[in-house]
Design a binder for these strands. Structure first.
Length: 284
DNA sequence: AACAGTATCAACCGCTTCTGC
DNA sequence: GGCAGAAGCGGTTGATACTGT
C-alpha cells in the first residue's frame, strides 16, 4: 500500500497562488522560519499541500531572489556548468545564489538551449561543411517542448518581461524583503539578437562570445565571498589554489574523455582557460 | 477582429534521496 | 539495517502573452 500523493487530498487547492496566500505564507515563515513544511498548511489554514508551500517559498517568496535579466556572466556560468554536469539544476543553482533551480531550468530550456543549437549550426557550417560525422551532435537534452520550432529572426525578441508582478506586489507589502525589480529587458534583447544575427552572417556567433565571457571581476567577487564552493571544504587562504588545482585536473580529465562531444570539449577548453586566468590572479 | 502558432514561466507530478525512529 | 515519512529534484504541463496572417 503506497503513500497517497499529498496533493491528491480533497480540498487541496492547485494552480497559481494569490497575493493573499503569499502574504499568509510569508508571514508564517517570517515568524517560524522555513522548514517543517508539513505543518505549514495546518498552521496557516492555507488550502495548499506542503510541497506547494515549499515550492512557492523557494522559487518566488524567498528573500534575495533575482528575477529576469540573466547577465552574460550568469549565462556563461549556466552554459559551462550544464556542459560539465548536465541537468543538475540544483547544483548549478548553488553557484548562482540569487537564482532558483526552476528559474535556471526554465532559462536553459527557453533561451540557452536554442542559442547553443544556433552555435552548433554555425560550427557545423564553418568547420565541417562536407563531413558532418566528424563533429558529433551536441549532447543537449531534447526534453520538453521539442516539437516547437526555433524562433524566427523576426520574432525572437518580441517577448516582454512579464515576471511575476504578483510577487512584486507582495514584496511591497512586506517590509525588509528584497525581491528585485525587473528592469526593461526588451531593448537589451533586441540588441543582443541583432548582434547574434549579424554574427551568424559573418559565420561567428558574437552573442556566444558574451555567453562564454566569464567576467573576471564577478568571478573574483564570487571567489572572495566563498560562493564558488558554497558547501565549504577549503580554508580561506588556500581555497583559490585548491580550486585551480582541481580545475586543472578536471579539465585534463575532461579533455581526455572520448565521450565528450566536440562542443563539450570546445566549451571546456575556452571557458576553462578564462576561469583559470581569473583563479590564477586570485592565487597571485 | 479573429484565429493559429509560438514563447515563456509558474506550478504540478512522480521519482529519488534524506532523515528519524 | 529496514522502514516510513518528509524533503528535494528534475521533467513536464498548462495558462497566458504575444506575433503574424
Amino acid at each position: 500500500m503506497g503513500r497517497p500523493p499529498c496533493c491528491d487530498k480533497v480540498g487541496i487547492k492547485k494552480g497559481p497562488w494569490t497575493p493573499e496566500e503569499d502574504i499568509i505564507l510569508v508571514t508564517y515563515i517570517q515568524e517560524h522560519g522555513p522548514g517543517n513544511w508539513r505543518s505549514v498548511p495546518t498552521n496557516t489554514g492555507l488550502l495548499r499541500c506542503s510541497k506547494s508551500c515549499r515550492l512557492r517559498w523557494t522559487n518566488y517568496l524567498r528573500p534575495g531572489i533575482k528575477r529576469g535579466n540573466f547577465t552574460p556572466h550568469e549565462e556563461g556560468m549556466i552554459v559551462h556548468l550544464q556542459a560539465l554536469w548536465g541537468n543538475k539544476w540544483a547544483a548549478i543553482a548553488s553557484y548562482l545564489p540569487q537564482r532558483t533551480d526552476n528559474d535556471i531550468k526554465n532559462y536553459w530550456n527557453t533561451h540557452l538551449k536554442k542559442k547553443i543549437k544556433k552555435l552548433q549550426s554555425a560550427f557545423d557550417s564553418q568547420m565541417a561543411p562536407s563531413d558532418s560525422t566528424t563533429y558529433p551532435p551536441l549532447s543537449i537534452s531534447t526534453a520538453g517542448k521539442s516539437h516547437q520550432n526555433m524562433p524566427s529572426a523576426k520574432n525572437a525578441h518580441h517577448y516582454p518581461n512579464i515576471y511575476a508582478s504578483s510577487t512584486q506586489n507582495i514584496s511591497r507589502l512586506l517590509e525588509g524583503w528584497m525581491i528585485s525589480s525587473t528592469p526593461q529587458k526588451k531593448l537589451a534583447d533586441q540588441e543582443t539578437n541583432k548582434e547574434c544575427l549579424n554574427g551568424l552572417v559573418e559565420g561567428v556567433d558574437f552573442e556566444f562570445e558574451s555567453v562564454l565571457a566569464f567576467d573576471n571581476g564577478c568571478w573574483d567577487k564570487m571567489m572572495k565571498s566563498g560562493d564558488y564552493y558554497p558547501k565549504g571544504g577549503y580554508g580561506n587562504n588556500d581555497k583559490a589554489a585548491c580550486i585551480l588545482h582541481e580545475r586543472k585536473l578536471q579539465k585534463q580529465e575532461s579533455l581526455n574523455n572520448a565521450s565528450l562531444t566536440f562542443f563539450d570539449r570546445w566549451l571546456l577548453d575556452e571557458s576553462a582557460s578564462q576561469l583559470d586566468g581569473a583563479i590564477e590572479q586570485q592565487v597571485n
